[in-house]
């Protein structure tokens, strides 16, 4: 019988990564009403860049930094080049475009780094039930989530971003540069996504390593109601723990199935999330 404490702690570590990637989804959904299906591929590309920097210089931190910067640049480019021209093309076109970007970036990553798994280092020693590496993951994600919440809740930039998201036309009438807010939103989200990618990568990086993580992150975001960063963080950690129990007590092969079951149950019975208010959603 696996140790309950080990499973819980392991679940929290995984859950932190789901929470981070889920947070990236929520930031973009709040700003543009688009679920960014390209998020895992953007994160993957950044993780591969971190890997290459790692290999070249042997430094974990430089790799992480490069990944975060690359994430920001890719996020801004995605918004400017791909999403902005589609702004008036209805609700479906941008979502389909992110799906296309997902396939493109995954293929490109495979072409550059091959489909063969690459060994990717942890930040710290990863041995033990709650290793330094695991603590690092949880702490970094909590700090990042706190920073994002503070940005939205306590700064005028956050206020302008929220206004641009809720009522773009009204926001522009009071002087908010709505287009700039969207670019900042995508940049921010992609940086958080890149962080999630680097945290999720070890021990092996391959083009599909984030696919399952993305399903869990999406579930976490849906648990939080897709618009609620706090709900998504709680959803991510909670889902990590639950899936860890499923893996430990039932069987690891059922983890993805359990996640999908949770996703379907939430969408059926609480479509606005466990923490959301009963606002009808258009999706």
């Amino acid at each position: 019988m696996p140790d309950f404490l080990t499973l819980t702690l392991g679940g929290l570590t995984n859950g932190a990564i789901y929470a981070a990637l889920g947070l990236a989804l929520v930031i973009i959904y709040r700003a543009t009403r688009v679920v960014n299906f390209a998020q895992p591929a953007l994160a993957l590309l950044c993780a591969y860049l971190a890997y290459s920097v790692n290999r070249a210089t042997g430094g974990y931190w430089l790799g992480l930094l490069v990944a975060l910067v690359a994430g920001g640049v890719l996020g801004a480019l995605t918004e400017r080049v791909l999403m902005r021209p589609l702004r008036r093309s209805g609700e479906l076109a941008p979502v389909i475009a992110t799906l296309g970007l997902l396939m493109l970036l995954q293929a490109v990553s495979g072409m550059i780094w091959s489909a063969e798994p690459k060994s990717f280092p942890y930040a710290f020693d990863f041995r033990g039930a709650f290793s330094p590496a695991a603590v690092f993951v949880v702490v970094v994600v909590l700090v990042t989530a706190g920073a994002v919440l503070a940005l939205f809740g306590a700064t005028t930039l956050g206020l302008r971003m929220r206004a641009a998201a809720f009522k773009p036309e009204v926001a522009s009438l009071v002087g908010v540069k709505v287009g700039l807010m969207l670019t900042i939103g995508w940049t921010l989200a992609a940086v958080v996504g890149a962080l999630a990618g680097v945290l999720a990568a070890p021990p092996f990086l391959s083009p599909t390593v984030l696919d399952a993580v993305f399903v869990y992150a999406l579930t976490a975001a849906v648990l939080g109601g897709l618009e609620n960063p706090v709900g998504t963080i709680i959803g991510g950690f909670g889902l990590g723990v639950v899936l860890s129990y499923v893996s430990g007590y039932v069987g690891p092969e059922l983890v993805t199935l359990a996640s999908l079951a949770i996703l379907v149950l939430v969408l059926t019975f609480r479509p606005h999330g466990l923490f959301g208010r009963g606002v009808a959603r258009r999706v």
């Binding site: 206020l159 206004a163 009204v170 009071v174 002087g175």
Partner: peptide, 16 residues
């Protein structure tokens, strides 16, 4: 008026 924001935040938005 942006109904999701508070009265204070709506005011704060003007003339930032």
């Amino acid at each position: 008026v942006i109904t999701e924001l508070t009265v204070a935040d709506n005011l704060r938005l003007g003339g930032l």
